[in-house]
Write a protein that binds this DNA or RNA. Structure first.
Lengths: 107, 107
DNA sequence: GCAATAGTTAAGTAGATGCTTCAGTGTTTC
DNA sequence: GAAACACTGAAGCATCTACTTAACTATTGC
């Protein structure tokens, strides 16, 4: 579910925008309402909500509404999936380098 | 240098595109020329070069030209920087959850 | 030196993206 | 029940992105 390519696509796309990364950064320090998320950003509430919806669609952020307040929080599993994708590629490359080193050392 | 926000921005933006992630994936298995990179992709060589230039500008890929062939390889340090950004946020969140758990357990 | 190869650049274009404003809806407070 | 609050949705718009094609440069092999 989390490793399907479409979801990864949404996640990386979500992380590509500085405002959205700033929102994730804020949420990494604890839950926040929409207006709290919006406060440090130099754009309209409406724009923030559009970013937030994208973050939620990507799975990186989960939100729930109580009364008139929508509270947002990070979904660590999704962050881990993105992290994992990068990590696998990097390790694959580094292992290759190691094997190459071993091969060269054998002479 | 690798942690400056502008570079991170370029990296995440570069990773946001499926074709570019496919290129990174291919390169994680070893160096490749431009045409080798292009081969599995359903687009013109020209388009691939544009993606490649973006990947190079982001620091994720390093290339060097020998004769008429440009050989590309992954820059693991850059991958690590992106990985690290995500990891820090996730850990920050998870540590917060732990503290909260401890606090609740204390009653 | 001529042809094939490997890559590059520029210009153009359709569609995606990141906003804005404005007109709402539902909730709480007095 | 009226006003303030927290958020939402739709429409419009400027810009950016991911391509395309076509014309081009630099190497290599014969």
């Amino acid at each position: 579910m989390l490793h399907d390519p479409a979801q990864l696509d949404l996640m990386f796309q979500a992380l590509a925008d500085p405002a959205r990364r700033q929102m994730v950064d804020r949420l990494s320090r604890g839950p926040a309402s929409v207006s709290q998320l919006a406060e440090p950003l130099a754009m309209s509430l409406s724009a923030v909500i559009q970013h937030l919806n994208l973050l939620e669609a990507s799975g990186l952020v989960r939100t729930q509404k109580v009364g008139r307040v929508r509270t947002c929080q990070i979904e660590p599993k999704a962050l881990r999936a993105a992290e994992h994708w990068i990590n696998e590629r990097r390790l694959s490359w580094e292992r290759r380098l190691d094997r190459l080193g071993d091969f060269l050392a054998e002479k």
